[in-house]
Write a protein that binds this DNA or RNA. Structure first.
Lengths: 197, 197
DNA sequence: AACGATACGGAACACGGTTCCGCTTTGGCA
DNA sequence: TGCCAAAGCGGAACCGTGTTCCGTATCGTT
């Protein structure tokens, strides 16, 4: 689907020096602008910040979603890798799951507007959603399975649904002082325990 | 804030006959288009369906959000009124709360894209969100209070947060066969019971 | 130094909400 | 009934998005 950009592969080699430099510049500019103005900052703003034309962005990242993926890829990967690690700490599986979800929530709510973009209507950002879910759902499933085996949660919880649910709960967590996504996520995780008290 | 349109008041009187007829036509057209293409259908589509110019829409409804409010106002009101009624049926407060939330969820998930528009970032649709919350948060608070008094749920749950959380969980419930908002809402409501099992 | 391949800039396009204004319709009044 | 100001209407035009296109500039190889 893609040629040689950071978004989907790592073949950063064999390209003109200026191209590689621009890609680097773009990622930095995008990261900066995302922090300042949120993930929905106009492409033109990012181009301006990087001092390049919009065409350059689209040559490196076929769509805005790919740029967002590239910017957050490392952090998503780190989150994914934290799952097994937590399980190995000796915490109870349910506690490990809780902490892992906290990690995910922290990541989402500190990225202005990121959660909103992960929602499953909105057909742009398909690639972004796919990347997040491909990476994180298996980890979640593993944690869920461990907790289920330990009898700490009700069985039959679908990791995909849970990730989507948690992601949804984080939407607008910034930008609305009266809404604290962590409270709701905590309730949701608490609800994982048996069907009734 | 507003003059004499359905969105915020009821003074439908003292306007030209054609204006009232057009408003009626518009509401019907909008409702039809919303069902067919979702709440995010372009204003031009609605205008076309109604056989009027876009200017006419904006004269009757200052913004798209006001049109959406007008279309769903009755159903929101009905939902609000169902709360006290459920409480009076003799069900346990927690059960009543559960059923009321179900009503709300049913309403949201059957309106293609409505939930997505209620999310609290997205500064358009401020009016829409305000209407929903003004109407439903007090009802939710009442049900929550009753359940708390009965000792069925943990205390200190904020009705506003809960409504926002439930609304968020419903985002994209249509348009994604793998995600069933009802499951997640059920977990959330289950989580309302004591802090630990 | 020259030249083909690669990359760049940014104008132009598609598409959404919203505004504006010249024209039409209505309805009270002579 | 006929007139005409006010009320309403239609839709072109405008603004802000993401995305595409293509003439021009740069690179790096010969």
């Amino acid at each position: 689907m893609n040629d040689g950009n950071e978004a989907t592969g790592q073949a950063v080699v064999s390209r003109r020096k200026d191209a590689r430099r621009n890609q680097e510049t773009l990622l930095n500019a995008a990261a900066t602008v995302f922090v300042a103005s949120g993930v929905n900052a106009p492409v033109r703003d990012i181009a301006a910040k990087a001092g390049v034309g919009v065409g350059t962005i689209y040559r490196h990242f076929p769509t805005r979603a790919d740029l967002v993926i590239a910017v957050y890829r490392h952090q998503v990967d780190a989150c994914a890798e934290a799952g097994p690690a937590l399980l190995a700490t000796g915490l109870s599986p349910h506690a490990a799951l809780g902490q892992w979800i906290d990690l995910f929530v922290d990541f989402l709510v500190t990225k202005h507007g990121l959660a909103a973009v992960l929602r499953s209507d909105n057909s742009d950002f398909e690639a972004l959603r796919a990347y997040f879910l491909d990476r994180l759902v298996p980890v979640c499933a593993e944690l869920l399975e461990a907790a289920a085996v330990a009898g700490e949660i009700r069985p039959g919880i679908d990791a995909y649904e849970l990730m989507r649910g948690v992601g949804n709960l984080c939407i607008g967590a910034d930008s609305d002082p009266r809404y604290d996504a962590r409270h709701m996520v905590e309730l949701l995780i608490a609800g994982l325990r048996g069907p009734h008290r």
